[in-house]
Design a protein around this nucleic acid. Sequence first.
DNA 1: ACTTGAACGAAACGGCTCGTTTCGTTATAT
DNA 2: ATATAACGAAACGAGCCGTTTCGTTCAAGT
Lengths: 200, 200
Amino acid sequence: MTGKKAADARRTSIGAQRNPASQDAILQAAEEILVEGGLGSFSIEAVARRAHAGKPTIYRWWPTRTILLLDVYHRQKFVDIAPDTGAIETDIFQLLSDLLEFWNTGHGGAVFRSVIAEAQTDPAASKALAAYMAERYQQGGEIFRRAKARDEVADWVVPELAMEIITSFVWKRLLTDRLEIAPEQLRLVVRHLVHGLKAQ
Amino acid sequence: MTGKKAADARRTSIGAQRNPASQDAILQAAEEILVEGGLGSFSIEAVARRAHAGKPTIYRWWPTRTILLLDVYHRQKFVDIAPDTGAIETDIFQLLSDLLEFWNTGHGGAVFRSVIAEAQTDPAASKALAAYMAERYQQGGEIFRRAKARDEVADWVVPELAMEIITSFVWKRLLTDRLEIAPEQLRLVVRHLVHGLKAQ
DNA sequence: ACTTGAACGAAACGGCTCGTTTCGTTATAT
DNA sequence: ATATAACGAAACGAGCCGTTTCGTTCAAGT
């Protein structure tokens, strides 16, 4: 992606201040390890080795493995959660399609899977994930607010809840390693999902 | 649940055959650890301590932590995946309601969460989970096959896929620790889900 | 009746990882 | 000029992992 490995040059202190080169090398090494080996290979020790960084340097800025993981996660580029194509069905297709592509082709899938897995073990990760998801549902609910303004979906549809529902399916596919969904198959899924959301 | 702890009595060899008392104590201790401390506390060592069993005894019958975890999982009582209430909407409500209750009140939720988390790390767990889910979709698809026979859902509905979709939402709730859903709220979710599955 | 062999729990092992501490070095901040 | 803090490397003790050893208990086979 960036074209360079986690640790190209030797680094050292640049005085009584944080060294951004070390910070970058550590975060990049962490992401590489997640992508290549998954959460099982992800440890402070392994990241330090790969980044040619000292363990105390990592522990100074990222007190726990979970915090480092979440930092890697937050540095990702995220997909547009509320595309506006003019129709609810194509909006949802676009959103899910973008999510799948992001998870499939980039590093996003491996990182996000790891965050979810970590949340099953670490309350800090669980709390962070909950907060993040709530924000995303709020933002993404815009799709349904717009559609309601167009009288395209029923009154009783709750935007945030609908958002949560339509993203659930791809979550499950991510966690069960079945992300490769052909466009026509995805269209069928969206058809299942959307038809009930339309006003009669 | 059973009323007794993992290891009440001292056990020893009963000759050149497997000791079912040890087997039970180990599986019960494993389940207790999962419920009380989650996957993070789950190790062969911890299970051996709690069950007053020797580590070699565990390794003899469950070569890896994942295999032990899956054995705990498979010993659960599972909910009826295809309730037959006569109408698709109440069928789905019943199914999701049963799932939520099982996960909430019993040990099922903690154990299943752990299996999903383990599947993010261990390919063996991932494979086992995939096989199990495929079987469940197949069985649960019966709900939609019956509904199609009644002309209650559209022709294009794919039973197994519909099953996957409607269970996705509670999966996500399980994994984000938001299982407590009031009946009227669940009814709303089902309304979101089902309405699109109905024939016009 | 006697021997063989397997399962059992306990203990100890070598190896590994974890989070911390120590060290000498670098360079900013005062 | 001095104090302070960050840096990477190395080493530390603690704990867990998977295995081995040990003495004991009995079913299975002769």
